[in-house]
Design a protein around this nucleic acid. Structure first.
Lengths: 128, 128
DNA sequence: TCGTCGCGTAACTGTAGGGTTACGCATTAT
DNA sequence: ATAATGCGTAACCCTACAGTTACGCGACGA
């Protein structure tokens, strides 16, 4: 396995993405780097709360921080998202090919609930 | 609000994906539907723990459950993952650019921003 | 009709996490 | 030097949740 670059734990990445505020921070940083204060200003929660979110994002390597005077400028690092992307990739085929079979499944479900006889070939009881 | 098809809250989806066990359950179900017991058998945690994970996955509509006799068969539903995919899509352009040009781009963006005069030419970039 | 099986749920525990306010430490301004 | 600014951290809430064991209930096989 050629790990040419840093291997990020997709664990930390998924966990960082779990919170909507953190995803919003990332979305914000897509438009450009920002100092922590301005990031915090974009949200209704307190500044320390954002500071903790930024710490998590740092831990997941989704952002980078560097100092500019007394500012702490945060920059997006989308690299770890590749792991999410490749995890997702295993499912892409699914929602491409699976729509018809999903449809039949749903119809089968419906049929089963209406007739309720399909699975009960072994028993004559067949009722709920 | 246009609900063309069922609208899944990506919130629930991201949150469901945050747990590695749940992701593993999904990975398992990619190979085919399974009754709850067999899913639980694939993990070291207790069966009720898996049951609760399944509940969360159901809540996020990532799995569907139907009864077969006394079994509860779970089936993967990859649909909500589309939301994750499209969220991720906004970042794909980013990791297509190489990182150095990204860095300069982002910093240029930032320099254009509001209080640029305040932070200005200290050029503390690059150190640290 | 019974006992067993499959599986969800209740009740409980420990811990992580997101929110707050108070504070400390650099860095810049006066 | 002193004050003010920017921001992280500590200490503290409260809720969510992953895990456990004990239990209940419908579905089967006898």
């Amino acid at each position: 396995m050629r790990n040419r670059s840093v291997t990020y734990s997709s664990e930390a990445t998924f966990q960082a993405l779990a919170d909507p505020t953190r995803r919003a921070v990332l979305d914000l940083l897509r438009r450009g780097s920002l100092p922590a204060g301005e990031i915090a200003g974009a949200f209704s929660v307190s500044r320390p709360a954002i500071s903790k979110h930024l710490r998590l994002l740092r831990r997941a390597h989704l952002v980078r921080e560097h100092r500019e005077g007394r500012n702490r400028v945060y920059q997006l690092n989308p690299e770890p998202l590749r792991a999410v992307d490749s995890w997702l990739d295993q499912y892409r085929n699914f929602w491409r090919m699976n729509l018809t079979s999903l449809k039949t499944f749903v119809e089968a479900e419906h049929a089963k609930e209406t007739h309720a006889a399909k699975l009960n070939r072994k028993t004559s009881k067949g009722d709920l």
